[in-house]
């Protein structure tokens, strides 16, 4: 290896100004700007996941039985996200900008789970309970969608009641 510098054009002292249209924010800059949001999501997620772990510790399910604990965790989380999101997006007051990332994305997102749902369907199927697996698959879906709809509808009713008073 020689130490002679590679020949090439001289580097201009003043760089040409960047006239490109600003694109979507790149990750490093977005990271810094969004650090409080990411932290709120992380903190909320840790709280939500701990609550789910507590529920599973309190009421563990057998491998070949209907996973009632995760079922109710998911259904409850769906009811609350329906009500909460309507209250913060359709209510009269503008909520704190970190409230939705913390509670909606963090706590409720960390509390509810799709991966454990899919694993329990697989486990029931593999342990010779295909009918129970199918019942759990469809039952969680139906109850979760009904819960999010009911949560949203009752929050809208509450908002309307408050406005008409």
């Amino acid at each position: 290896m020689s130490d002679t510098p590679a020949p090439g054009p001289a580097v201009p002292q003043d760089p040409v100004p960047d006239t490109r249209a600003p694109g979507p924010p790149r990750f490093p800059r977005a990271w810094r700007a969004d650090a409080p949001v990411v932290a709120a999501v992380a903190l909320g997620g840790a709280l939500g996941a701990s609550a789910r772990y507590a529920a599973v510790l309190l009421r563990p399910a057998a491998a070949d039985a209907f996973p009632w604990t995760v079922f109710w965790v998911n259904v409850a989380g769906c009811a609350v996200i329906g009500a909460f999101t309507v209250l913060v997006t359709e209510g009269a007051r503008t909520p704190h900008p970190l409230l939705r990332p913390f509670f909606g994305t963090g706590v409720l997102g960390g509390f509810t789970t799709f991966s454990a749902y899919a694993l329990d369907i697989h486990r029931l199927h593999e342990s010779g309970e295909p009918l129970l697996a199918l019942l759990y698959l469809a039952g969680t879906l139906a109850a979760a969608l009904a819960a999010v709809l009911l949560g949203a509808a009752s929050a809208r009713l509450a908002l309307r009641g408050r406005r008409s008073r």
Binding site: G45, A46, G48, A49, R52, Y53, V56, N74, G77, C78, V80, I81, G82, T85, G104, T105, L108, G109, G110, F111, T112, T113, F114, S115, A116, Y117, T140, A144, L145, A147, V148
Partner: peptide, 17 residues
């Protein structure tokens, strides 16, 4: 990785909403 990471990475509430 299971209860913590995958559990918090995936979500049923946002999916339903």
């Amino acid at each position: 990785l299971g209860t913590g990471l995958c559990g918090a990475l995936t979500t049923y509430s946002t999916f339903s909403w």
